[in-house]
Design a binder for these strands. Structure first.
Length: 348
DNA sequence: AAGCCGGGGGA
DNA sequence: TCCCCAGGCTT
């Protein structure tokens, strides 16, 4: 039996019941695919349900504000996905008459939609024969065909993409694409793959050559950097001073507290004595509330300390574009997990 | 080509 | 700790 038949047979017997599999609505598929990028199914599922409930059509999605989208996205990470979706939903309304595109060539032009997502939407919605290559497929193909080119290299992406197109079932692209990904996720897992029960074992290069642990090959990632965040808690009349983050850094357009960052750990006394802090806060009394709290991102280690400020002079707030927000309204702002967790305790 | 962008879970 | 997850964008 050929590769694709074997994989599809396995899929029909072993597939999970996922809520986005029983539709051919390109909007709903787009919603699920963007949410699932670099995200485990169990983590993304509640977000998918929440988004579909709040925005049943692309028109509903486009009518929301970016702040509302980001609030629903809170805690899922990679927030550019939410921002790009909002942009794309509006573009679909304005330039596609509210009909979500279904062809690969149109999909690939949308912001936030790359080769994987375009292939997924096109094949699942209208059965276009484009092979998906996600982390699961890279791993499965690497092991089965014994390809040791790094999967995160330019050459690797090209090679695996061409291989995926060659071996796909062009008669039933949607089922096949679902099947290869599910096979990678459940059978040909990253660690301890279930080789003993694997129907592909007879033809698998990695199994026959004892290379399962060596494949796939991946270029090593860059080391994480340490950053030291000092968050200033300034409140007045049940209102909290907040800052909306800007471009060119983590957590774009999310809300946090007034922040001072250093490249290495400093004491609160040193912090308050620094010219930068003095020019934005003046003479203040400060008391540490909690920290340092370590918050790990995929590429940075944040060390956050929260400091309560008293005797803060109003005139400093406008200069930094900080705003006072009612305690009750702060809960409605999209915040990084780090800030949300802190405020959850601080505001009770 | 390499770096950047979250958060969580498993080993 | 390190690696991975239904990747894509920017430089």
């Amino acid at each position: 039996m050929i590769f694709s038949e074997e994989v599809i047979n396995w899929y029909l017997k072993n597939k999970r019941d996922l809520p986005w599999r029983d539709t051919n609505d390109a909007y709903i598929i787009w919603l699920s695919e963007i949410i699932m990028q670099q995200t485990r199914v169990e983590q993304g599922m509640p977000y998918f349900n929440r988004f579909l409930e709040n925005y049943p059509t692309v028109s509903h999605f486009a009518s929301a504000t970016e702040d509302e989208i980001l609030k629903l996205w809170q805690g899922l990470g990679y927030y550019s996905r939410g921002r790009n979706m909002h942009y794309t939903a509006n573009l679909v309304m304005d330039e596609h008459g509210g009909y979500f595109p279904t062809s690969y060539d149109k999909l690939i032009k949308l912001k936030g939609v790359g080769e994987y997502t375009a292939a997924a939407i096109a094949s699942f919605s209208v059965g276009e024969a484009k092979a998906v290559v996600d982390g699961n497929v890279f791993r499965l193909l690497s092991r089965y065909f014994g390809v040791d080119i790094p999967i995160n290299s330019t050459k690797g992406k090209k090679t695996f993409g061409e291989l995926a197109d060659e071996i796909m079932d062009r008669e039933q692209p949607g089922i096949y694409n679902q099947a290869v990904m599910e096979f990678g996720a459940l059978q040909c897992k990253p660690f301890n793959p279930d080789c003993p029960t694997c129907p592909l074992r007879p033809g698998c290069y990695a199994f026959r050559n004892r290379k399962v642990k060596e494949l796939p090959v991946k270029l090593k990632q860059v080391a994480s950097k340490d950053r030291y965040f000092y968050y200033f808690v300034v409140s007045k009349n049940n209102r909290l001073l907040v800052n909306k983050r800007g471009a060119n850094d983590i957590w774009q357009n999310l809300y946090e507290l007034p922040l001072f960052e250093t490249s290495q750990a400093v004491s609160i006394e040193e912090l308050l004595a620094s010219p930068e802090v003095r020019s934005n806060f003046g003479d203040v009394l400060a008391k540490k509330i909690t920290g340092p709290i370590k918050h790990v991102l995929s590429h940075q280690n944040l060390h956050a300390t929260f400091i309560e400020i008293q005797d803060f002079e109003e005139r400093f707030a406008s200069k930094m574009n900080w705003q006072y927000v009612d305690y009750e309204e702060v809960r409605n702002l999209a915040q990084p997990k780090l800030i949300f967790s802190f405020l959850n305790k601080f505001l009770n």
